[in-house]
């Protein structure tokens, strides 16, 4: 069952919102939520399938000089930056350049063209799953995800850059959102794909608490972040946390427990042989804790997810 998707609106909603990475699954869902409330301009190097008629889309790489033309023409008041690529099979240098350079370019353009608000989507996984993590990580926790999982370094770097941008440009309201694992019917990220496996690998004897959030709730959080006056870094939590085994049980999965001493080397071989899309570093996420404290977003925005825990779990099979 889909959660309620009442339009999000508030006084001072920016009149034009530029959304990067709009052609992705999350971007498209966000566009559907936002285009009735404000003028949405899309920016993505991929075409936007099923684009609403009132939405202007520019098929451009965000690193290209012509992106400035989009700013000049549409004069966006706000940016929502989703244009981040995660693909463990993609060439490292290409994803790194796209993610890091792209973010630099787009935020610089915001500062130059009088954009008032920049919402950047990061992830709660920037803290990294670690055995000595506190049960609830506040926003001030060091971003350690890159320590063991180099693919995460892009995201950590992007997150750090957005933070320094926030301090360098006080005239611009920068909001950095770190949602927990995003799941949903359309998203194709690692947590959703993992939960879709009929026989997922688990680590024998480990059953960490896991937080998930429905893609629709992430879209609502991104829209709420546009509210005038809001700036800062926020963890965004879903309807709660529960043991990984309870999620798998709820979905009727039959896990294959593998001892922790061999799971990484087995997964490495399987990944290299293209038998799985999960790099071995992902094992940390099903072995150790990476649960965040979302109380700041609740306090400052009145955040509450609309999808229940059960519906959020079920959403991966919807």
């Amino acid at each position: 069952m889909a959660p309620r998707t009442e339009p999000i609106t508030f006084p001072g909603m920016p009149r034009t919102v530029l959304v990067t990475g709009i052609s992705g699954n999350l971007g498209r869902a966000l566009a559907k939520l936002l285009h009735t409330e404000t003028r949405v301009v899309g920016l993505d190097r991929r075409p936007f399938a099923g684009k609403p008629k009132d939405l202007a889309h520019h098929q451009l790489d965000i690193r290209k000089a012509r992106v400035e033309e989009v700013f000049r023409r549409h004069r966006p008041e706000a940016l929502i930056h989703l244009g981040i690529m995660h693909d463990p099979r993609e060439l490292r240098s290409e994803t790194h350049s796209f993610n890091v350079l792209g973010t630099h370019k787009i935020l610089d353009l915001c500062a130059r063209h009088g954009v008032k608000k920049a919402v950047v989507l990061s992830s709660a996984n920037v803290y990294g799953p670690r055995p000595d993590n506190s049960n609830f990580l506040p926003e001030e926790t060091p971003l350690m995800a890159g320590e063991r999982f180099s693919e995460m370094r892009d995201l950590v770097e992007l997150d750090m850059y957005a933070q320094s941008f926030m301090w360098k440009h006080p005239e611009l309201e920068t909001v950095l959102l770190r949602p927990v694992n995003i799941v949903g019917p359309t998203v194709r990220n690692a947590p959703s794909n993992y939960l879709r496996l009929a026989r997922p690998v688990t680590v024998l004897g480990f059953d960490p608490m896991v937080q998930i959030i429905h893609e629709q709730d992430v879209c609502r959080a991104l829209a709420l972040a546009l509210r005038p006056g809001l700036r800062g870094v926020f963890n965004v939590t879903g309807p709660g946390q529960l043991p990984l085994s309870a999620i798998l049980h709820q979905l009727g999965r039959h896990p294959i427990p593998v001892p922790h001493l061999v799971v990484r080397s087995l997964l490495r071989r399987a990944f290299e042989a293209r038998l799985t899309s999960f790099p071995p570093e992902e094992v940390d996420h099903i072995q150790y804790l990476c649960v965040v404290d979302g109380s700041r977003f609740v306090r400052e925005v009145g955040w509450s997810p609309s999808a229940s825990l059960r519906d959020t779990i079920r959403s991966v099979v919807a």
Binding site: N135, F136, M209, G240, Q241, L242, A246, Q250
Partner: peptide, 8 residues
């Protein structure tokens, strides 16, 4: 509803 508190 799954029988655990936030700490597990």
């Amino acid at each position: 509803e799954f029988g655990v508190d936030p700490y597990g």
